[in-house]
Amino acid sequence: MNLPSPETLLYALLVITAVLIAIIVVRPAITVSAPGKMLAFVAFCILPVLCGSMAASTHIERSKQTKFCLSCHIMEPYGKSLYVDDPSYIPAAHFQNHRVPPEEACYTCHTDYGLYGGVRAKLGGLRHIYIQYFGTPPRPEDIQLYKPYNNRECLHCHAGARSFESNAVHTAIRDQLTGNEMSCISSGCHDTVHNVKDQSKVKFWTPGQ
């Protein structure tokens, strides 16, 4: 037996809440009795707060999806860069080989792994929405990170992995990598990231071929 999804349960809860509230709106006299008062408190206070919390959680989970990030037109070249047919392109190599979850590819790499990393990412997303609709968004090729990419985001997965640890170069500069003295993606080693400016010169992989 398949259980309903959390979203289905949320929609059901929203409808039930609306129905209970509507009952009291149509017949407010039922709140004269004690059970009626309790029903009103549940319908007017408890359930709306519960629904709002669950809906907020759903919205936050949706905002982690790759398709959510790419739904803005300005992100179209970045979405295309995930399909570049060149293993030296770091995002493409990670995305195509499922080294990051493809459904949450953007969020996986562009969220600090600290305790408040997710919160910072969400606040940054709100700022992006503001700029997209009320400000002057830059050209896609002019978009830059707020701060240099932290090696921690790479080492979060790669540190301890055999292929990483067995590389003599990594071993030699390990302290510099962990201390962010040398960047993984801007020190001449893995510098090909999205490169949206030069997409006319690359080939693209089509899934299924």
């Binding site: 929609y11 609306a18 509230i21 905002s63």
Partner: peptide, 29 residues
């Protein structure tokens, strides 16, 4: 007061349902 409060809450729930069905960044706003 109950009627007005209830109508506001029902409107709020309708807006929440619409925002959940509309899968765009502006839906969160």
């Amino acid at each position: 007061a109950l009627r007005i409060s209830g109508l506001l809450l029902i409107l709020g729930i309708v807006v929440e349902i619409i925002s959940l069905l509309w899968e765009k960044p502006l839906a969160f706003l």
